[in-house]
Design a binder for these strands. Structure first.
Lengths: 135, 135
DNA sequence: ATATGTGCAAATGCTTTGCAACGCC
DNA sequence: GGCGTTGCAAAGCATTTGCACATAT
């Protein structure tokens, strides 16, 4: 599995040029406007495959949409994402992990797993209360 | 707004009898089998309304489905949910909040918001490595 | 050659919405 | 009586899938 097709390559290159989390659809449009011809279904399938392989990071937005981007850090980490521009900062939080484990342990839970994502406004967008149509 | 209709009451009662997180559809079915006649759309609309009012807790499952249940604690809190039985424990984690704020602040982010849910196996289901079809 | 990958369009599954009828206040 | 509510069915969305065709190895 995992052949080297034109589409797969194109998707990887597109991802390489991205810095923020993007949805499959956004990636697909991006590629389209870049002149690439790739089916939407393929984008979905490929993004999933890459995620399984660990080459991509997935983030499930509040509305359930999946956002992808290239992995920076390997291993477990979390994200701080700007609601306005999608700028993302990855961070490790060993203390948080420990605290969570402790709490879970207190309740007898094992085999833990968790989701932790922080959303906010990055420096550029703080206090920007402008009435812009937004994203 | 927020009138006292038969449907609204029925939904609240159904929720009162639930202990775990349930999807709108599950709640709808539950009611149907209880003999209640309520439209699915109404269930959705009501659950959202109740959530806005702060009377319900929402949890977005991994696949984007929204799960609801009555609020226990008021204010901000997180959940520890058993993957097997759905048993849920609410917990507060001021330290986590503080730590997250600190990290976000370090990066210049403001107007924060976050999602934090912990999944695991509760006491009853720990070590249950049985090859059962699962949920 | 042949297992994989791709494209398209149809199908899913959850959720939302338009609109006329309905019922609480 | 009037305005929030409801129901139903249609519409929306993101995502998935069936299937015939193309292609990497």
């Amino acid at each position: 599995m995992q052949r080297n097709t034109r589409q797969r390559t194109a998707i990887l290159e597109t991802l390489a040029r991205q810095d923020d989390f993007r949805s499959a659809q956004q990636i697909h449009e991006q590629m389209k406007s870049d002149g690439e011809t790739v089916g939407l279904a393929t984008v979905y399938r490929t993004l999933q495959a890459l995620t399984r392989t660990g080459r991509l990071d997935v983030l499930v937005a509040g509305d359930g949409e999946s956002l992808y981007r290239q992995c920076e850090a390997s291993g477990h980490h979390h994200h701080l994402v700007c609601r306005e521009c999608g700028r993302t900062v990855e961070f490790l939080a060993p203390k948080l992990e420990a605290a969570m484990s402790a709490i879970a342990g207190d309740h007898g839970f094992t085999d833990l797993d968790h989701t932790l994502e922080v959303f906010g406004l990055c420096t550029k967008h703080s206090r920007t209360d402008e009435t812009e149509p937004g994203r």
